[in-house]
Design a protein around this nucleic acid. Structure first.
Lengths: 159, 159
DNA sequence: GCATCTTCTCTCGACATCGAGATATCTCAT
DNA sequence: ATGAGATATCTCGATGTCGAGAGAAGATGC
């Protein structure tokens, strides 16, 4: 807890990576106990909170490539948690919807998940949370802005 | 940047995951451009800063399972960056050491890496860094403490 | 109407990781 | 010495992810 007098960039990176790793492992415990991976859980959670979506729409939310989405949906469909339905207005699309069993399952699991997260952040004061939130947001945005400039940049420049 | 008035635990988790994801992608750009994955890079970096180590010692530093370490060392050995040497005092052990080529390679790449990290955290004031550091450390420790209690606990209890 | 471009999903092959188990070696109490 | 247990590394099979590309279907321009 006692931070060194000067926080170098590598130190910050290490502690970020470690914090995410530990938190991720902690969060995954309850999820893995139900036989799901984190991606599957996130897919179901998005469906619970946003309603039926197309595969690519879910993929955008959970940051998964299309190939990964196909197998993610396959997995949760196999277990009867979601259903693929074809859309009459656009036959390329598969609309993914929770089944009643899936809704019940993810509702319970998400409640547990929230409880886990509360425990994880219980040791933080409100101001600490605020500082963490704004700092992480800054880093995230900086990284994202610095990563993109491969293709999109000259696309913007010359359009 | 403008944080909501109350930062819920799920919000904090999301922003942490996103920040790590973006930062990780950003950091990996330069590394992947050299044909290495993040694990390989960390292995080489540890060797650069700590000198020759055994496979399991490196695995402890970079948080990789033994099976993953074997293939990680295989990869960097294949490229001539490290060398496995047997230890006469303990023949179970393989001592991993950087080759001259490997040392040169990782020295350059690490310099680039540090520069990238500086850029990533350039937008943060010293106090922001401190707050981030201590907050992330707290979360990491909390998560780690909450994840372990599976096996080690009764080992401690009854020893 | 028809050709072309784009979008959506799926298949395929490659990759990094892990857990479990095999093997070789060392340590230590008897 | 010797046998039991610990330790270090490796092999094997499974998993989840991704990029590239295929195929179907919608959108657009002529």
């Amino acid at each position: 807890m006692s931070a060194p007098s000067h926080i170098s960039a590598p130190k910050l990176w290490i502690v970020l990576a470690r914090a995410y790793g530990s938190a991720s492992a902690y969060v995954q415990r309850a999820i893995a106990a139900q036989g799901l991976c984190l991606s599957d859980f996130m897919v179901l959670e998005v469906l619970l909170h946003k309603g039926p979506l197309t595969i690519s729409a879910i993929g955008d939310k959970v940051l998964l490539a299309s190939a990964s989405m196909t197998s993610a949906i396959d997995r949760v469909e196999q277990r009867g948690f979601v259903q693929r339905t074809t859309c009459s207005s656009d036959r390329r699309i598969r609309l993914i919807a929770l089944t009643p069993a899936g809704r019940h399952f993810i509702t319970d699991l998400f409640a547990q998940h929230q409880q886990d997260l509360e425990l994880l952040t219980a040791g933080l004061t409100e101001t600490e949370r605020k500082h963490l939130y704004s700092g992480l947001k800054k880093i995230g945005l900086t990284a994202q802005a610095a990563t993109v400039p491969d293709l999109p940049q000259d696309h913007i420049k010359f359009s």
